[in-house]
Design a protein around this nucleic acid. Structure first.
Lengths: 231, 231
DNA sequence: GTCTATATTATGATAGAC
DNA sequence: GTCTATCATAATATAGAC
């Protein structure tokens, strides 16, 4: 039981630290404040019975969060091959927004400290952000039947994921910024845009006489039945 | 001449401070390091002959940057009413990317300190980010001939600007993140998506039998001549 | 395991010589 | 206006009682 209590205290310290780190930054958070928030005696080095240093506490917090996210990653492939592009994109958008909410604390922390903190932070960026982009780009290529080029898929992934990330991260990061748009409008608009990008991609990027990338091969099937556009 | 030298030193201090603040954060940057980077004697309080406190230095730096941006704001309305939506969007995308590059330092700083720094920082967020969103949303409404609703315009602005902001800000903010996509692909993809959103917006959002927002009224005119889509 | 007390260093800021 | 020297404070981390 002594060990259980220890583990609980350790978790409480990590909880408090991650919250404060993400809110005030690593250097803006003192050991004393963490102890206070964790219910320990402020100013006493109680933390050092659980972590050898402040940086080790940061590392442990990030690693714990990464472990939780890794568990979610396995669920990620649940929605795929539903057959209907519109439905898949809608689910994908909602899922990404929900995951961004869960990652909000970590992302705030990374935004402040990723460039100069310990290596675990840059690793976290790769695992959370970079991997998501790569997976989405690969999904785009697969979903298009390899019609879009790697470069096109990367561009679509950058635009698409970037839009959702900004929609969630900017207000969170900059304080209460720009007007609040409800999620339904965000998702609906995003799906419309992505649907367009995925169904009008050209097989390759060599510019013809038309400067628009709108003439290319269309994926038939579930979404584009040709009757939706009314010239 | 003594005054000129003073002003030059003051500017050098601000240069060094803004660079270090944006890179290591406000609390992660010591007065000593700023003095060192500005060519003053490290550890001496040389800075305090130009600024009453560290926070006043931060404020002066942000204000100087905001002044420079305010000058650019007047040029912003140069590209409008070119008549061709595709061209306008392409110019808008390139302009936003270029401005994001110029604002990179300030945005890094705001991402780290906006939530708890002095009020000038939240003001900066409003002036730089919030105002841009509002202007873009208004431009969308005007450009569509008031066909899109305010809510739709906000959603399109959020998606559209968010995509560009993420494309530039994330690598900048998180260190070297996700694969580098060249600007041409970014702009081309973004223009295609925004063109679609602006030309297929429905007059209002009440859901009909079609769950897609793709059937709505089309703006004729310069862009959509009906021949670009090949059903 | 947690507290009291404290060592040690880093940092924001000031006084006074030149 | 800039430097040398220094103060005062806050923060990381440790030693030892209970």
């Amino acid at each position: 039981m002594g060990d259980l209590s220890t583990a609980a205290t350790r978790d409480r310290i990590i909880d408090a630290a991650m919250e404060l780190f993400s809110e005030h930054g690593y250097r803006g958070t003192s050991i004393t404040r963490i102890e206070e928030a964790a219910g320990l005696s402020p100013g006493a080095g109680g933390i050092y019975h659980h972590f050898p240093s402040k940086e080790a506490l940061l590392t442990a917090g990030v690693q714990r969060q990464l472990s939780r996210l890794a568990a979610l990653r396995d669920i990620r492939r649940l929605f795929a091959d539903l057959g209907d592009l519109h439905t898949e994109l809608t689910l994908a958008a909602r899922y990404v927004l929900a995951e961004l909410d869960q990652e909000a604390q970590l992302l705030r922390l990374l935004a402040s400290e990723a460039r100069h903190g310990p290596r675990i932070l840059t690793d976290a960026v790769v695992q959370v952000v970079d991997l998501t982009y790569r997976e989405f780009a690969e999904w785009i290529i697969d979903r298009s039947g390899s019609v879009v080029s790697t470069q096109q898929a990367d561009a679509i992934a950058t635009i698409g994921l970037g839009a959702l990330i900004s929609a969630r991260l900017l207000p969170n990061l900059l304080g209460t910024a720009h007007s609040k748009v409800d999620d339904h409008s965000i998702v609906e608009t995003w799906v419309s845009a992505l649907e367009h990008l995925l169904t009008t991609a050209k097989p390759n990027l060599s510019a013809g006489t038309d400067t628009h990338p709108c003439r290319g091969r269309l994926r038939s099937g579930d979404v584009l039945d040709g009757s939706r556009y009314e010239p």
